[in-house]
Amino acid sequence: MKISEGKIHVNYNVVELQLDPVIRRRLEALGITEGSRIQILNKKRNGAFIIKTRGTRWAIGKQISEGIICREEKNEKGN
């Protein structure tokens, strides 16, 4: 699933980044790597999200939120 389809306050693990190489590399350098945990804190109808990963909050636009492929983390809610 895409992180853009995710729910607020749920943890996800990144599976793949299907993004333009420049943006992908940038996200990876920020720690949004395969297997890393992302929690959705807030979302807007236009596809912008506030996510938390490795202790930092990020606001991401629609294009990025639709390119982060992830799966829900089992048995854990919130962090």
Binding site: D20, I23, R26, R57, W58, A59, G61, K62, Q63, I64
Partner: peptide, 10 residues
């Protein structure tokens, strides 16, 4: 528009 908003929220 590529809408690549990416900003840290302190």
């Amino acid at each position: 528009n590529s809408n690549t908003l990416l900003i840290e929220l302190p």
